[in-house]
Design a protein around this nucleic acid. Structure first.
Lengths: 140, 140
DNA sequence: TAAAACGTTGGAGTGCACTCGAAGCAAGTA
DNA sequence: TACTTGCTTCGAGTGCACTCCAACGTTTTA
């Protein structure tokens, strides 16, 4: 539970930009430390800084990336696709078009998903309104 | 691919209501025969009729139920919860309140999900618009 | 300084929702 | 009748996304 305002880290430990320990990032993102390490292993994190003893130190930029990944995760995008996107980012500027494509495809998926959910909502409302009436009928 | 209009079954084989074979239902719902059998095994199907030789014969009502289950599945509801709902239906009228509760909770989840997706959509739109501009910046 | 808390690694395990395979009947077609 | 297709059951296998473990090193607190 040692959040951001804890004793040492975060803001200004050694003169450079803020660094977060893995447990701080876990608290901030809701992901577990296990998951964060796993993200790095599979290439979903773009290479996290280490302290002189080899411990991870996450930057603000890393947090931003994780926030974005969190959004992608909400869309239901498979992890493999997110990794693909991360690779494209690493490969540099000549992949911009492909990245935009990928994002636009995702955008379309999200739109579809929203429509599906709204349909479902309509069905649920009908069902629920049936339960409102006292008479029996055909309960499914 | 033998859809509904195939040779024998469906409409009026033996005088009673329409009966669909498992492969017809698979074609209609997009589920596999395996999955349909599995649904029955775990109690997610309310007991499918059998032919005199023991083969499944699905009714219109079964199709309606599967359509509803499909909607619930779209919400991301765990199968165990759907089974719970199916059990409540089987238990009869005194579970109406609990069923309505369950449906209303699901409704709330769906609403939350839609909001999340709309947030994500906003983020994607921002990203995509960045890719529209030619200047580099900080591509993440 | 000692203890507690936190970090590292590789690899194995978990839970979910299917998904498939094998062996064996049964029904319809050439 | 022979063949093809489809059905049955049970149990094992798959793919995904984590999730945890063991063994050990580091850092912080009392």
């Amino acid at each position: 539970m040692s959040a951001i305002a804890s004793t040492s880290t975060a803001a200004s430990t050694s003169g450079t930009r803020p660094h977060y320990t893995i447990s701080e990032v876990a608290a901030l993102t809701g992901l577990t430390a296990h998951t964060l390490r796993w993200y790095e292993r599979i290439g979903l994190m773009p290479h996290v800084d280490r302290s002189h003893t080899g411990q991870r130190r996450f930057s603000e930029r890393d947090l931003g990336w994780l926030a974005f990944v969190g959004k992608l995760r909400l869309t239901g995008m498979p992890v493999a696709d997110m990794v693909r996107y991360a690779e494209l980012v690493r490969e540099g500027d000549h992949t911009r078009d492909e990245r935009r494509e990928l994002l636009e495809a995702t955008r379309r998926d999200v739109l579809t998903r929203i429509t599906e959910l709204q349909d479902t909502l309509a069905v649920l409302d009908i069902k629920i309104s049936h339960y409102g009436t006292v008479c029996g009928g055909t309960p499914t």
